[in-house]
Amino acid sequence: MSTQNRGTVKVENGRYRVSGNFHYAFPNDPIRDENGKLLGITNPADMTHIHAYGGEAPFFENLSNAKLLGTKCANPKCETYGSVYIPYRIHCPDCLMRNEEVDLTDLARKGASVHTFMITERTGAFNTLEKPIRFVNVEFEGVSTILMGYLSVGEPSIGMKVVPIFQTKNPTFTIMDLSWVPAGTSADELPEGFSL
């Protein structure tokens, strides 16, 4: 069975409006042992979920505008007032007030470095990254947290200076639109669709 006309979603008046197919049914197959004894069946399934980014939507939207957004606790009464977070936290983990958005793009371009990293050939189903994947966990001066990502150029090492790159052409609006390269990498070394 083909999987044509895959489902898409819009929101109108605060409601999801869906069109196309959100699931495809395929027949089962028997599982037998070498003697032909029935042990079970395969259960194929193909479904599309509808996922709300909610308050994190600005982060994912702005990657395609080559912007890295974080947030900051803006409650002067909070014990950790002024703490800056990326991953983008909608609420302060201490006072639970709504955080203020901050643009961390310049900070990331000037002051980001690899806290730790990992290179792996292994991936799970649905992976779209080129192997081996070079995971990097990036720390920024003055930021409380350490962001996970992947390095697109060169080999990672702890303490290495890196800068963000963004998939501005054909963005996916996922975390995949953000990647990292060693500081000093030129625009012509970047993967297709990415810009500094």
Partner: peptide, 20 residues
Amino acid sequence: DWETPLGHIYTGYYAVMAQK
């Protein structure tokens, strides 16, 4: 949203700790 799309491989998220 922030980790799974990166390789869909939990070992990778864990192994950065091992590396450190």
